[in-house]
């Protein structure tokens, strides 16, 4: 078990490096750059800026420099930097995870920007995750138990709607109805709990629907199995049969979905944050891409990809607790 976790954690390192390399390459290959705008800079100034950021060097030195910065490298004599994680071994100082300064937001490091905007996305993501899980599981279980009843058809029709409505449509509809029409909730921005409700519902809808459908399918499958018949033959009541014997097997498909879902919820707040004008990581990410803010794009992509890999690992570990037949090697 422990060696499995260590192995999987270790694999994250090359995977993350691969993601960073690809992202870096894509930004470079795409036409244009941070400095190509409507306003042409005088050639002398552009030269100076490029020199400052090391953009005058050949691409491979730039790549290696970037790689050193985002992983770990020793600081040169007299070099001073406030970014990243720093520690000293004897005379030499080692610096890690430095994604540099944002090009757009002068004087702010990428790490700092992520740290500042992450809490909004995390709050939204976790709340949406919990909502999707609770409502999705409950709806799925009820639908499975009352198969082919109006309750089943109703909840599955709603789930279908949730799956088919993209969040950039659902968000504005919710705003129109509950904010602009009924005046129950604020239409946008961040502040107190009432600001959170609409974006969380918008964000959770598709996951809720998906979890409900997975739960229903999983439960229907399990409730037909032989060991459920055995449990009934023992004289157990339906609630015990369902919760003690059925649920664990029934929610395994849901568990495999929740890892990617949680990562998707944290990373996928992009549209919702835009719709509701929330200064989260997604909003910043869009800005960074539009601005061609290379260090910031790289930082956010690296951060989110590592997050996704860790969540997937967490899911794989949780299988073992659900299903005793699963062994880790």
């Amino acid at each position: 078990m422990l060696s499995f976790i260590l192995k999987r954690l270790f694999i994250i390192i090359p995977m993350a490096l691969l993601v960073i390399t690809l992202t870096w390459a894509l930004i470079r290959i795409a036409p244009g750059s941070f400095y190509s705008g409507e306003k042409q800079l005088p050639p002398a100034i552009e030269e100076n800026i490029k020199k400052k950021y090391g953009l005058d060097k050949p691409w491979y030195s730039q790549y290696l420099l970037m790689l050193g910065n985002v992983t770990c490298r020793t600081l040169a004599e007299g070099e001073v930097t406030k970014n990243g994680l720093q520690f000293s071994i004897g005379q030499t100082t080692v610096k890690c995870f430095d994604f540099g300064d944002s090009l757009k937001y002068q004087g702010q490091s990428v790490n700092e920007i992520i740290r500042r905007h992450l809490p909004y996305s995390v709050t939204l993501g976790i709340l949406a995750y919990l909502l999707a899980l609770v409502i999705g599981l409950a709806a799925g279980i009820i639908a499975a138990l009352k198969q082919n009843s109006p309750l089943d058809y109703g909840s599955m029709a709603l789930a279908m709607l949730g799956l088919s409505l993209p969040n950039f449509v659902l968000g504005p509809i919710l705003v129109l109805v509950f904010a602009l029409g009924l005046h129950w909730l604020p239409p946008a921005r961040w502040g107190n709990l009432s600001n959170v409700i609409l974006p969380v519902i918008t964000l959770a809808a598709i996951y809720m629907a998906y979890i409900a459908r997975l739960t229903r399918a999983g439960m229907l499958e399990v409730m037909r199995s032989d060991y459920i018949r055995t449990a009934r033959a023992k004289g157990l009541n339906e609630t015990t049969v369902l919760l003690k014997h059925g649920l664990r097997g029934g929610i395994i498909p849901v568990v495999s979905f929740t890892g990617p879902a949680l990562a998707g919820l944290l990373a996928g707040t992009v549209v919702v944050e835009k719709v509701f004008a929330i200064p989260g990581l997604g909003n910043i990410f869009i800005q960074a891409v539009l601005n061609r803010d290379e260090p910031l794009i790289l930082g956010i992509v690296a951060f989110l990809s590592i997050l996704i890999m860790i969540f997937n690992l967490a899911v794989d570990i949780s299988y073992g607790f659900l299903d005793p037949r699963i062994r880790y090697e």
Binding site: D226, T230, A231, H245, L322
Partner: peptide, 16 residues
């Protein structure tokens, strides 16, 4: 009244 089923591989709950 109690019952024994055909397939002991699937008639016991694998999770418990």
């Amino acid at each position: 009244m109690a019952m024994i089923f055909q397939d002991p591989m699937t008639s016991l709950n694998p999770f418990l």
